[in-house]
Design a protein around this nucleic acid. Structure first.
Lengths: 137, 137
DNA sequence: TATTTAATTGTAATGGTTACGATTAGATAC
DNA sequence: GTATCTAATCGTAACCATTACAATTAAATA
């Protein structure tokens, strides 16, 4: 996901282009290999905008996730975000517990189990693999 | 999982049998169809032990999870617990977002993707399906 | 430049979880 | 039964991520 493309997407919906929002997107594009905790985004953006508030961080992260610019997950009780992968189809992630980097896993188990959930309404699912990547081993 | 069996398991490791711990196990056996948030355990146990502390609840839940008497997951940023299913093999769960009840799904995607994670050390994985059960639909 | 409305700031509240010193109560040995 | 040892509990406060909100600022558009 490209920054300009993301900003255009927001613009179409009436959201404004702000320095803070732009900076948040930059942070993700500089480090787009894994999930980043909200806390890290805050620290990073404070280097440029010392007075940035929690509200700004969370509002933007949630908005960006809502608009599918980012995707999110919860690790150790903390919300993490990364650019949404739109280069290929639906997939899942191996997540390195050392550095946070992810590796796409091109397999979704939902196809295999659809019939076993007859009578149930499936809204969502989560499939994540945790461990250490080659670099952290 | 049976209460006495669980207590015996703890006894072997030098953990004592206490009224509070016993009550926690009872609560799970009375309602063993789904995940229960820690908060609910606290409320429930307070009916019998009004002065029970957070420390007692969390210490016991974590101990029981450690000893594989319970299994845990995090839903909406809250830790949830249920009896560990040991009647059949490794499996996953559909979790009803309405009532918390679960349905076992006898399929684990890890077998299918082992070779795609060559060079990675897999420590853990999570596969959960969320939606509404027939009763909540 | 004026106007409109989204966005940000500053700060406080919330809520689940964790921590800890003092006290209590199982378990075991005598 | 009593003494002793140590796990367990209690009471309370701290911690920390997240959420909330009124007042202010700043994009966007005309």
């Amino acid at each position: 996901m490209n920054i300009e493309k993301a900003i255009d997407k927001l613009k179409e919906k009436g959201y404004k282009r702000t320095k803070q929002r732009e900076r948040i997107l930059e942070i993700f594009s500089e480090q787009d290999q894994g999930y980043i905790p909200a806390k890290t985004i805050l620290k990073e953006i404070q280097k440029d905008f010392p007075g940035v508030s929690y509200d700004t961080i969370y509002r933007n992260l949630y908005l960006l996730a809502e608009e599918q610019v980012l995707e999110s997950t919860e690790l150790d009780g903390e919300k993490h975000f990364r650019f949404h992968c739109d280069t290929h189809g639906h997939h899942h992630h191996f997540i390195c517990t050392g550095c946070g980097k992810t590796k796409a896993v091109e397999f979704c188990p939902m196809d295999k189990i659809a019939q076993s959930l007859d009578g149930y309404a499936v809204d969502d699912h989560k499939f994540e693999i945790y461990g250490k990547c080659p670099g952290c081993l």
